[in-house]
Design a protein around this nucleic acid. Sequence first.
RNA 1: CGGGGUGUGGCGCAGAUGGCAGCGCGCCGCGUUUGGGACGCGGAGGCCAGCGGUUCAAGUCCGCUCACCCCGACCA
Length: 602
Amino acid sequence: MRMSQLFSQTLREAPADAEVESHKLLVRAGYIQQLAAGIFTYLPLAKRVLTKIENIMRQEIDAIGGQEITMPVVHPAEIWKETERWYQIGSEMGRFYDKSGRDMVLAMTHEEVVADLVRRTIHSYRQLPALLYHIQTKWRDDPRPRAGLIRVREFTMKDSYSLDMDQEGLDQQYRAHYQAYYNIFHRCGLQVKAFKSDVGMMGGSMAHEFMYLTPIGEDTLLVCDNCGYAANRQIARFKKDPAAVEEPLPIEKVATPDTKTIEDLAEYLGIPKSKTAKAIFIIASIIQGVESYDRLVFAIVRGDMDLNETKLTNVLKAKELRPALEDEIISVGAVPGYASPKGLKDVLVVVDDAIPESPNLVAGANEEGFHYLNVNYDRDYKAEIVADIAVAEEGSLCPECGNPMGLQRGVEVGNIFKLGSRYSEAMGANFLDQEDQAKPVIMGSYGIGSGRLMASVAEEHHDEYGLIWPISVAPYAVHLIILQKKVKHQDQNKGEEVDDNDPLDVAEGLYEQFQSAGIEILFDDRDQRPGVKFNDADLIGIPIRLTISDRSLQAGGIEAKQRDQKEKTIIPIDKIVSHVEATIAELHANIDQEVVTIPFEE
RNA sequence: CGGGGUGUGGCGCAGAUGGCAGCGCGCCGCGUUUGGGACGCGGAGGCCAGCGGUUCAAGUCCGCUCACCCCGACCA
């Protein structure tokens, strides 16, 4: 490609609304342009990177038995109603009417379409197992797109769907994806770590998220350096410091004026926060079939902990939670700031599992300005649900080994789910087994967003001058720069001296040569000053830079430099193609070294 | 959805107290220049986000709306 023809333009300054480096650089280097919040155009350079990433994904999924298909972006609402996700998912789903007024859905994911495909196609156990995948547009109307390509509303995803007769088959395909995903990320030059995660709206029994660890990430992860326990904060378990063993003391009401928060209360009474009970009122909308209803929930965690809303949501099987309003709290007879689980009506009480273990806590007395001392679970009140509903913090103890865990931020670049029969049962996607029994197909689903992966690679591989693509995903392997535009030699008819080493001639010749050698090359043939060309080359981030100039020719050839290194070497013209081929091979070999077997962690 | 911020040419920005819409980069033409974002001369390009008000006069004051960004909530 000639840079004079390339449809893009580099910018000296990044748009003011770009904050993270991958966003700034991808815009400045002319890879992407924003059309609206979370909606981007991918220009030729970006398209080439995406194609490379997608081809890596194709190779790895094909290698574990995948067959590529393409499923529609527009779905009739019926299939989403069949699985009830039409009712469960809120504004994140894009809905519209077709010309006849039928409900239509923009694809957020494709389980429904796959289940429909399966019920039409799979009839016998002989057709299983199978693995389908496609690379297709998704629309998720995220309430807050951010950080350039890291979190968008419209994006392209490789999603695969495994189909099996039984759980064992699913386990096998799940593990195959686990390794294939590591291979994909490693081949893109990105180090990731798999974390156990919440299944969220996907349902099912197990999920892992593949996290690129970076401070710009929006997921919070807990990691144990000692035993390797790793989990998304949404579901991370932790060992709760046991409370001191004490005999239950008699309950006692004390005046505690102006102590609406746990901090105030603990300070006023001169006790640790772990000796108090924290009350949180939540309105949960709980799903029941196609309907959902609101329920006031009184959640209690120990004062030294905070509520984990994801855990509570899962315990309640709720669609969503929101904080209760003062009026709603008062309406059940509770006093905000001094609420007590004793004597409330029509409230669903959920306590954290550390509460029954913690005797003699201070809790609200349900009276403005008063608390009870020595409240004991079971003796003084009971809950409908006792479960782990507390959130892990920096320093929380590892549930496996008790070591203090650290908090990290991560970008979720991929995820894998064991769906089981959630979709096949809802949609009647059955097969006949050897005993002539109809059984639901056991499904798994596995996704990687290609744009987010590209942005993560950019985030990881750049310096102050620009992008530094790994060879495996670089838009071109070679960036050829000519530092002189005009042909120097004179009109040959006059018989004057002809300089066969004219830089432009050499560059044109090499451009041809590289192309016929099948090496992807971007040729900066523009009439620009050297500084402009070098800066653009650094910004665009192609791995190998070749410079042809009077100076290089006098030194004996072409100057070669790798984007991630400082050294420049002069290579004779007749050796340059083989030299570049060798460099490319070496760069690929370096990446392939990173592709290693990762033990599967439950 | 709550909080905060910003909307003036492709990008970055300036435009007290209302009075002819500007600068740098980029873009077009000519010339000089050519190893790390050159210089000279001459150009093109803007309903100042939109709507409504106040005023002789609004980019500027008032009201409403919209868009985009950030934090939080949310999120396969």
